[in-house]
Simulated scan of single mutants.
Amino acid sequence: MKRIFCFLFLYIIANLAAIAQQDPQFSFNRLTQLTVNPGFAGNDGLITGIILNRYQWDGIKGSPQTLVFSAGGATNILGLNSGIGFNVISDELGFSKNISVSFDYAYRAKTRIGELGIGTSIGFYNMSVNGDWYIPESDVHGTINEPGIPQGEASQLAFDVGLGLFLKSKDYYFGASVTHLNQASLILADQARSFLARHYYLAAGYNITLSDPLFELHPSVFFKTDMVAYQLDCTVDLVYKKRFSAGLNYRINDAVCVLVGFEMNNGLKIGYAYDLMTSALAGYGGGSHELYLSYSLDLGKNRIKKYKSIRYL
């Protein structure tokens, strides 16, 4: 356990003293696209809200815990076909905690290859660090004597901006976005300085109707990088009657994930994902758990269209 704590300790110091705070990762990355791509807002013509909770590296104290609330919908602003969104993310890791709040706007235009959303997000990012530390399952505790870590508690609020494009047709989608575009500085103490590095995202998916029209196959890929490290998720979901789904996700050099979801009632959905670690941490703890609850509301449109939303796995 002490070895794991040291790993988390060094990981947080590296983020503070070196370049950036890594954006949290999700197994249900098709559901959380609004949090990283404002062009996604209003893409399905519905009003949709989602609450998602992720517990990463179960059994390792101080491991990442992430809570997300995201909501968005289609609207008309000054005669323009638009989408709006709102996101709140709380991300904890060891003695650091980050909270971000963002508002999204997307202009939506029909093209020959699908509907294109061009969006921007503005918001705030708050990083807080508690320099008082302890080793789990030990009496050893105290204050970190490290110039790059503030003594006691410290926090910094920064302005944050993002941009994104999202193209969607009946059978496929493609998204490209960048978060932390302005690379805001975070100064927690005289020598405790960091900044939000830009993160670049690419997402693509396709819907395949099988020989039995009750079944669909939804392959997708999700890529992100801060130009130092990268993460690639490859996912395949099998959907039955547009309401029940089961899938597998492979995150390169990190985990194999099992995903399930179903619609409990008209517009109400629930899903669960379990990540089986394949990285060096596999021998120190359990996998990661992810649970979401979402609700979609169709104001005056055909209810059948609701099930075509890519938000459903």
Rank of each mutant, 00 (worst) to 15 (best):
D212W: 08
D212R: 15
D212S: 13
D212Q: 13
D212F: 11
P213T: 03
P213E: 09
P213G: 06
L214H: 15
L214G: 15
L214I: 14
L214N: 15
L214E: 12
L214Y: 14
L214A: 15
F215R: 12
F215D: 06
E216Y: 14
L217S: 06
L217Y: 09
L217P: 12
H218C: 12
H218I: 13
H218V: 11
H218G: 06
P219F: 01
P219R: 05
P219M: 02
S220M: 08
S220R: 01
S220E: 01
S220C: 05
S220K: 08
V221R: 03
V221D: 04
V221Y: 04
V221W: 01
V221K: 04
F222V: 08
F222D: 02
F223N: 04
F223D: 04
F223M: 03
K224W: 11
K224F: 02
K224H: 11
K224Q: 13
T225A: 03
T225Y: 04
D226P: 02
D226W: 02
M227L: 05
M227V: 06
M227D: 11
V228A: 06
V228P: 12
V228L: 01
V228Y: 11
V228F: 10
V228R: 13
V228N: 13
A229E: 14
A229D: 14
A229R: 14
Y230E: 12
Y230T: 06
Y230R: 12
Y230G: 02
Q231S: 05
Q231R: 11
Q231T: 07
L232F: 00
L232W: 09
L232R: 00
L232C: 04
D233W: 04
D233L: 00
C234P: 00
C234N: 03
T235V: 04
T235S: 07
T235E: 02
T235N: 00
T235I: 03
V236S: 04
V236A: 09
V236L: 09
V236G: 10
V236H: 07
V236I: 09
V236E: 00
V236D: 03
D237F: 15
D237N: 08
D237G: 06
D237A: 12
D237S: 08
L238A: 02
L238P: 14
L238M: 07
L238K: 10
V239M: 10
V239I: 10
V239H: 08
V239R: 07
V239F: 11
V239D: 03
Y240T: 07
Y240N: 07
Y240D: 02
Y240H: 10
Y240W: 08
K241R: 14
K241V: 06
K241Y: 13
K242T: 08
K242M: 09
K242N: 14
K242W: 10
K242P: 15
R243Q: 13
R243M: 07
R243A: 12
